[in-house]
Every structure is written in C-alpha cells, then in structure tokens.
Design a protein around this nucleic acid. Structure first.
Lengths: 338, 338
DNA sequence: TTGTACGCGTTATCAA
DNA sequence: TTGATAACGCGTACAA
C-alpha cells in the first residue's frame, strides 16, 4: 500500500523509539552519529516527511502567517503579497493568503478562519481602521501588523505610505501646472483615501484656491470599473465641456477606468485633460500615467519582517508605526496650462 | 488570563462531557435541545472557536486545497486564483496559495510543503508537463488537478485552453490582414507555449507561407521585462527597418514589454507594426491590444469544482481533460496591409 | 544517548 | 441522549 509513513513506521523499521526519530528530524545534538545515520537511511528510504499538522499541534506553533488583503487581483496588493511572501520564506514561515474583496463581513470571517487555523501572526490590510477584525485580533492577543493603513485611535502596529503627503504632491503638481479647478475622485472611507483627500485639501488651500471651486467626487472608488462608472456618469450629466482641466484619482486602477472612458469619448490626455493617479502599478508606466509611487513590495517586506521580529522577540510593548515616503512620478498624462 | 478556550473549558463550564460539546459544534442530531442550548451559551460566552489544527489531525482532513501557480503578480494567474478561491469558498474549503516564480526547484519545495501540511488536494499550474512535482503528486496519491497545462504522456486531470487553436487564430488573423512575414516571440518550453507555436506553424503552412521566412524568436519569454529585453536586443541588432510588419507575442505581458520599447523608439502601433498578444488580461483592453482571450477565472472555477467533485465522490478512475475554446479579441493594434 | 509516557485539541467508537 | 476513552502524529520532560 502507499499509506503515508509516519514517525512510528520509521521508528519501527529503524528499531528505535519514536522520540529518537523525532530528535533526528529536529537535529537534536544529543544523538549518536550511528543511530542518526541509521534513522536517516530509513527516512530517505520511506520518503518520510513529518506531518505538519501534528507537529503544529504539539509545538503550539504553525510557522504560518495569515495575510488578509483586499484584492489580490489588484497589482497593488499583489506586490505587497509578494514582498510579504519572500520575506516569510526567508524566515521559514509560510503564508496563508486570503482576500476580502473589500467586504467587511468576509474580512471578519477570514480573520476567524485564520485564528482557527492557529496562524502565528497576521498581516492585514483592513477595510477601514475601525474594522471589527482589528478588535478581535487585539482581544485574542495574536501578533498582527497592519499594512496600508494607519490607525489614529488605537496603538496598533502598522506600515503605510504617508498618503497625506502623497495626495499633497499630486495636487500641488497640478496646481503648479496652472490648474485652478481640479477634480478629485475620492475613495472609500479607508484611512489611505481619507489621507489622500486631506493632502488634496492642503495643497488647494496652500495654493490659495478655494475648496468650493474644486470638483470633489464623493465616490467610494476602488477599481477601474468604478472609474468607468463615475466618469461615464459625470459626462452624462455635465457633458465633456463640464470636465475640469485636471483630475487626481484616488488610485491608478480608477485612473485607468477614467482613461478608458476618455479614449472611448475621444477626450485626449493630456491635451484636453490632465490626469494623475496613485500607487504606480506596472501598467501606469505603459500608459505614461503620472502618478504617486508607493513602495508596495517594500511595504510587504517591512510588515513581514517587523511582525516576525516582534513575534520572535516577544517585544509587544513597543508600538511600531512606520510611515513611508511617497514619490511623484512624472510621466506624460499632464500638461502645462498655457 | 486570555488563554484561548478549548473544548475542555467549554465542557467543564457547561457541566457536560467534551463529546457533548463536540456534538453540539458539529450539529449532531442526537442531542437534546436543552443541553444544546446550555452548551451554546457557554460557547458564545467564552467566544470559543474550535482549533482547526486539532480537528484536522483527528478527522484526517484539513478542508484546505493547495494551489501552486507560477506568478500571482501576473493578472493572468491572479484571475485563475480568484476563480479557484471563490469556488472553494462556496464548498467550505480554504485555499493555500503559493507561487513558484517559474522556478522548478521552488515548485518542488512548495509541493512538499503542501503535502506536509496535509492539504486535501492540489491545483497546480506546473512549470512544464514533465515536472518532478507531478510525479510526486501521482506517487503520493493526493487528488490533484492541472490548470493551464495539458499532459500528453500522462493521464492526469487538467483544464486548459486549446492553445494550438489560439495560436492559430492569432496568426491566421495577421495573415488574413496581408502579412507574409510574421514574428513570433516564443515562450518557454511549457505546454501552452509549445501549443501556441504549433498553432502558429499551422496557420503559416495553411496560408501557403514558408516557416523559413518567418521570424521566430527562440526566447523563453514570460514577463513584460522579457518582452523589453527581447525587443531591445532585436532592434539593436537588426534596426527598426529589420522589424517585420506583424508580431505575435506569446502572451500579453510580453506584448506590453514590446509596446513599451516601441513607444520609446517611436515605432507606432499599428501604423508601422501590427501586434497580437495572448490571454486578454485587463490591461490589454486599456491599450487596445488585439489578443486571444482565455477564460482565466472560469478555468480556476472549473479546476476547483472538478477537483472537489473528484475528491468527494472518490471517482479517481475517470480522467478529466478539459479543453476550453479561445477567442480572438480584435481591438486596435493591427492594421490591414494595403 | 535513548526510551517511556504524557500532552496538544479534536473526533469517533463503543458502552451505558 | 450522553460519557469514557482511544486514536490522530508528533514533541518533550523525565527517567533510565
């Protein structure tokens, strides 16, 4: 039969006790080279691999980190995931990746799923900073690290981009180009979106413009589909003439949707409308989209390594809140107003 | 203390045996409403959640499916992953997602990792159809399903697109447009790439053209970076004048790289060169890239549901090999030769 | 250096 | 309808 061999089988065939086999597997120092070799032979012969489930139960440690992201289909999150995964791998952890699809209820379910699966820690990009999942994590005492979200009320650990600054950079760039009436396509009420809007306002005020003259689209834009809907709607209502000269979209994906609509309607970028995105996902460079770069991969790396170092040192009394610097990437989607 | 409660704690507090608690958790029918309620109260009060690790060990079933893809950063695979995940979720399974980064050695490691973690089944997009991982899976007797790969020698279960047909469609389209000299940027020696090339040849021969007059780039192209390198190299050697009028790239990502180089060098698409990609990832539509569509999400769905149905019925004596029809999506990256 | 025996948190079998 | 109790596969304190 091809029953999967257990530690027992190895022990029996090698004529030793299971503890000895266990010691060999874990490279315990107190083991004679003789028995070690004998056991190793059988292990290879049987192709024995320890059962991680049993091992985890006994060790009370799974060596697995749960990762909760909002949408792995989005390159922004995919990059974060990659950064996390590579870092975990280097530290002998595996990753249990899930995504919430921006659904709060699902986020909660996944959190509990990961908890049930006894992951050693969790990295989460929460739907918003007052998410129920965070409360649960806190209460359970599981080590966790937020990514792409800062919390104001709670002293959680997190790493994110300084999105106020990012929003400011994008907007100031447009203002410096000469635009006085700028559209901002807002995101949902997650912290990054709120921060970008804050940056937007800051630049507007600093530029001696009036917020009331800006076109703030109070959407909950997230995806390119949202971008399409929003822009189609806007044009249907106000017409192409109603379009301001410049647009700052909450993220690249949304900006892509806008571009899509524009090319269908024959609105030329940047000749007729200037457009700035956010994130700097790969596609942005192909489309020559001016945008604000976030170091996504790096962000994943940091979250993972910080979480691990917290877990392994047990230093839970230090709150780590890391703010990364965004960078304006100027390409070809904006023009100087003459 | 905030020690996580176990079934024992619940039992003690409810004044019943652990078997009773277990029965309540699993909604066993033979349980009186009275005790059930009593136990449920305690469960809620303690916020008890069963330990999935222990449960899996006892049940000899983890309700988890391992998924091995080549690159989740690539939207093509990300879409497959989404299809898999949603389907699994509907069937009360979770997904353990990993990616090999196109590295054979890593693929092997991950396969063993998933096996150690006792996943109930595996969905894999192997690096090639003779991959060592597949042998192992077969030997272990774990249910598994290939995605985006068909096997000729082995009777494995798989779902993939008819890539011979896809390659044929792309090439024939270019030939019908009037091109007699076409460049094909080949992929690695995975089955899909080989099939696309086969389709390419078929269309060439059927079109009464000669293979020797076609420009076959014998690359192992996978990513947009590969596309960039290949095209820069080509232009450096043969110059822009050396470019054929039409190109069929092994996938959209590679085509994107080509586009990138073209726009830098001022080569206009489709005015000077016609370009066809493969996959129809989201970006393709934004860039008006003519391409061959694969139903990625659907492919993931199918793999997951077929795998589950095999696992749950135990019908391992029936080999499932599913070929999906590709579709040519004509957009704006090719022009009729006049 | 090796073995015995118990524990990890569940499920499942068998009695009661 | 309930409760003991033996698995599940492994790690480990303790004894030898």
């Amino acid at each position: 039969m091809k029953a999967i061999p257990t530690i027992k089988d190895v022990a029996r065939m090698a004529g030793v006790s299971i503890s000895t086999v266990s010691r060999v597997m874990n490279k315990s120092p107190k083991i004679s080279p003789g028995t070690s070799n004998k056991v190793m032979d059988i292990i290879r012969q049987l192709n024995y691999e320890p059962n991680n489930i049993a091992r985890s139960l006994s060790r009370k440690k799974t060596n697995t980190i749960g990762v909760i992201l909002e949408d792995i289909g989005n390159p922004f999150f995919a990059e974060i995931a990659k950064g996390v995964e590579e870092t975990l791998k280097k530290n002998k952890y595996s990753m249990f990746l899930t995504n919430t699809n921006f659904e709060e209820e699902l986020e909660l379910k996944l959190t509990n799923l990961l908890l049930s699966n006894k992951v050693d820690g969790i990295i989460i990009s929460p739907i918003n900073d007052r998410s129920k999942s965070l409360e649960i994590l806190k209460k359970r005492g599981v080590p966790f690290f937020l990514v792409n979200c800062r919390t104001l009320a709670e002293k959680f650990n997190w790493v994110t981009t300084d999105n106020v600054r990012g929003g400011y950079l994008a907007t100031k760039y447009l203002i410096d180009l000469g635009y006085k009436r700028i559209m901002h396509i807002k995101g949902a009420d997650d912290q990054p979106s709120k921060d970008k809007f804050r940056g937007f306002k800051k630049a507007v005020i600093e530029g001696k413009l009036r917020m009331s003259e800006q076109v703030v689209i109070d959407s909950k834009a997230k995806t390119s589909k949202d971008g399409i809907n929003i822009m189609e709607n806007y044009i249907r209502q106000k017409g192409i003439e109603g379009l301001p000269g410049a647009i700052f979209a909450v993220n690249d994906d949304v900006a892509l949707g806008v571009l899509q609509v524009f090319s269908k309607k024959g609105v030329r970028v940047p000749e007729e409308v200037s457009l700035v995105g956010y994130d700097d996902i790969d596609i942005a460079s192909y489309l020559f989209l001016t945008t604000v770069r976030q170091e996504k991969y790096k962000m994943g790396e940091i979250a993972a390594s910080e979480l691990i170092s917290e877990m392994e040192s047990g230093e839970s009394y230090i709150t780590k809140q890391l703010l990364m610097e965004p960078k304006l990437i100027v390409r070809n989607s904006c023009k100087l107003l003459t």
